[in-house]
Design a protein around this nucleic acid. Structure first.
Lengths: 249, 249
DNA sequence: ACCTGAACACCGTTCAAGT
DNA sequence: ACCTGAACACCGTTCAAGT
């Protein structure tokens, strides 16, 4: 990094919100908004749409710059006019995904509302597990998903949490939802390929009974005991978080 | 998958618990425990150790079968005598990692103890972030980490949760800890490469103020508001979970 | 049983050149 | 400004052959 201080700006970034890109149609005199230089041959939206489809159908691992290029009828390097690198393309696929499920009717009571939003958040991603693997790489980039944060924070404030506490409550709920989905997905995958390493209970030998008596006892029933209703867990967490409110006066 | 029903068993699996592998030293008569066929040239433990070192020093993405082979002075395909595939090697690197932090003194009170164990779990992985990326691929494979599950479940039972509830409590805590660590790591990484996409607050334009008033208001202070003490959050969660106990009689 | 070498079917990205 | 083609430095894994 001795002399590499000049950063290349991505020349034609893609608008993550899928709005019309100005793209050579501007004022009638043809100057304002007109792109300079060689006209585009590729459709930026098509690039992202293709990427999204590949991920959706075959998983994140199936996504490659070469594959997208092939499918949009171009060469790998042409894509780099539109995205800085593969990571950026991945993030762009997130936009608009939060509208997959219609925004639900929410209860009026702040506590119940908070739980309902968290459950919705969970259900949304449960339906599109690929989103999980992309989300690790950065923050939420889908503006249409922000209403959920807004709602949860608003509810927390309504129940007497401070501003910081309310933001923390949102994060805590999100972190749980995320973690839960990751492990649910891992379990589903393990179930899909049997003979693969089994759940940890198989590791327990007779010698462990002394050190891990409770686990040893529960091991045979672990699979069923493990299953929970996310809503119940979210309810418990929300109640725990709300119990930190300073008493209303 | 029409005719591919016969599964090759991995011939010489590596013991995840780092115990002495029998390896050609058996009964004095030289039969029991003796390996048949050509003797091994590679040390199974060295393979795993090398993999662990690479991941630890340069991250999971730096791990490749070719790289490990090179560093143990062999060829890529020789590794497949010891592991079924790259995934299995990855899982094997996990063994023993939970002893990185000494087992702490725990409070007697079940609630406090539960919190302390959860905090310990968090601190352990915080110190070895690479573990996170490997854990997604499966369950806990480090037997030495199971005492944490045992403790948490035991505490939950002591406070009056049912068996299923106690197991759920453990899972909920673990899912939160995992999610929290993933996003903390993501934030750290974002901070390390600035100019990269910023936090979501930068997405908010004037037009959003109407729809997202609270977020818009908090946005300028988001970075500081966001920071929380994990222990506080874990405490709230534990209290929420324990509040589900049937009242003690 | 264990190990090698060549081969297959891929990667992301840089770089120089063309339009 | 946008796109191409060749090249660089890699991947995981299969397969046939050797010891």
């Amino acid at each position: 990094m001795a002399d590499g201080e000049k950063k290349k700006r991505t020349p034609g970034p893609i608008d993550p919100d899928n709005r019309e890109v100005p793209d050579r149609r501007g004022a009638p005199d043809g100057t304002a908004g007109r792109r300079r230089g060689r006209p585009r041959r590729l459709d930026p939206q098509a690039i992202v749409a293709t990427a999204r489809r590949i991920i959706d159908e075959e998983g994140v691992d199936a996504l490659s710059m070469r594959r997208v290029a092939r499918e949009v009828g171009s060469t790998p390097m042409a894509l780099y006019t539109y995205v800085r690198d593969k990571d950026e393309l991945l993030l762009l696929t997130l936009a608009g995904t939060s509208t997959a499920l219609p925004r639900p009717q929410l209860p009026e009571d702040p506590r119940d509302r908070m739980i309902a939003v968290a459950v919705h958040m969970h259900g949304l991603i449960r339906r599109m597990p690929w989103v999980l693997k992309v989300l690790v790489r950065g923050d939420v980039t889908d503006k249409k998903a922000l209403w959920m944060a807004e709602e949860i924070i608003e509810c927390a404030l309504a129940r007497g949490l401070g501003e910081a506490q309310a933001v923390h409550a949102y994060r805590t709920l999100w972190h749980f939802v995320y973690g839960d989905l990751v492990f649910t997905a891992a379990r589903d995958q393990r179930a899909a390929e049997p003979d693969r390493r089994p759940s940890f209970t198989a590791l327990l030998t007779g010698q462990d009974a002394a050190e891990l008596p409770r686990l040893t006892e529960l091991a045979p029933r672990w699979e069923e005991l493990q299953r929970y209703d996310v809503e119940e867990q979210l309810t418990a967490i929300v109640d725990g978080l709300l119990s930190r409110a300073r008493p209303p006066r």
